[in-house]
Structures are given as C-alpha cells and as structure tokens.
Amino acid sequence: MSETVEKTNERMISLCHLAKKFGENEVLRDINLEVHRGEVVSVIGSSGSGKSTMLRCINLLERPTEGDILYHGDSILAPNTNLSAYRTKVTMVFQQFNLYNNMSVLKNCVIAQTKVLKRTKEEATKIAMEYLTKVGMDAYINARPAQLSGGQKQRVAIARALSMHPEVILFDEPTSALDPEMVGEVLDVMKSLAQTGLTMIVVTHEMAFAREVSDRVLFMDGGYIVEDGTPEEIFRNPKMKRTKEFLSRVL
C-alpha cells in the first residue's frame, strides 16, 4: 500500500441491498458496499460465492434482480442512464481477456476510444501507445491476440481499459487463466496501477496480492459479503468463522 495515494471520502460506487437470482438460484443476497475514490478493493472467496457476479453487476453485464447501484450517487439502473458513457468510466478486465480477435493489439486499444469517446485517430493512437508502453506491450502493436501469450494478452487488455481513462477498473480474476509463470507480469502491472490513485475492484485468488496491494478486502461466501476490512484485519484477525475456514484452506 502506498502512502502517496490520496484517499478521499468521495463515494464512487455504492451497492444497496443488491440481489441477483438466476431462476431459483440466488447468487447475490443483500449486498451493501461503498467504494471510494482511489480505493483498491480485493474480493476473495471460494468459487460460486458470487464474487464475479457482483463485479459483472457493477458493469451491468448482469442486471441485478433487486437493489440499486449508485455511481457518484446516481442510480445506473434508472431507464435514462447512458450505459455506454457509464461503462467508459467503470470498465472491466476479464479472466479470458476478451481481446477483439479480428484486430491488432494497437487497434484493440484504439477502437473504443474513436467510436465511443469520439477521439481522433491520432489522439487515440497516442493514448493507446502511452498505456501499451506502460504495460510493456508497445513492441507488439502489430500482433494479433492469437499470436500472444496469456500474460501478454492480459496486459493488452489492461492497456485497453486504461485507454478509456476510466475512474474505476473492475478486474474479474485477471490471473486465473494464466500459466503460473505469467501471473507475476500481470500482477506487477496491477500493483503499479494501484499506486496511481485509480479505483480498482479486484476479484482474485491471489492472496498475496490482496494482502499487499489492497486497501480493503471483502470476503464473500454464499452470495453474502461476510467480512469487510483492511487486509490486516481479514488476514490476521478474521472475525467470522467462515473467513477463518476459507483462509486456512488457501493460505
């Protein structure tokens, strides 16, 4: 955790009594969460605990069945919400990278800038190059996604998200699909991002990352947020039995 980052009390995203059902199956139950500007929040928990669904609800890839999601105090579930504009501000990085297979690395980072944010091609290219350099992928701008390794793909995906100049990036298990030796390169990029004051919500199985980099850790189980605290609190003195059990299994 870096001391240089300015943490404010400005609320970016609030989840209020959020619930999501797939048919009869309740995946999220009464989720309440506030994320402030500049916070790095890690979400841990076993598979099927609702971590990814919560993240996908925030980007509205899934529509919650109950409750509300506020962005700077305004509901994004309201019918007049400009979903496209919201998603440029609260964007997402996926486990499976989801790079556009029909485009080069550079085009992957430029296309949404020109089409959604209406930036000029020159400006978009400049911004894309800046972030591709930052993630160390500037040499590969002409490559196609199919020609890259998993770690390289994920770094491009992060550059693509950053090129939109978002306020929040949601990371959905960004290292889970990677070979072990490639996890480090992606986590390094994420660590450096955490120090820039970007707001990040990271669903992860990397306990070391959650412990070292995040300001807050959420433990989820059975669709509930069971425990919410600093890494110190969660990893050193977990209050809940379920958290202790989970940590004893993964640490």
């Binding site: 504009a85 998603r87 996926f94 990278f97 989801n98 556009y100 297979n101 949404a112």
Partner: peptide, 28 residues
C-alpha cells in the same frame, strides 16, 4: 460471448460491437 462482453465493457453499443468486432469475425 467474451467478444461481445469485451466490447460492451468499454461502452460500445450493440451496433458498434456488431460492426467492428462481431461481424468481421462472423463473416470470415
């Protein structure tokens, strides 16, 4: 499905997603 989500997650609309990401691959 990830190709759609990758495009939606950065704010592309249905038409933009179709024209720039999905159809070029589908047509091939």
């Amino acid at each position: 499905k990830g190709q759609f989500e990758g495009a939606h997650a950065v704010g592309m609309t249905h038409w933009q997603t179709m024209v720039h990401v999905i159809l070029p691959q589908a047509v091939r």
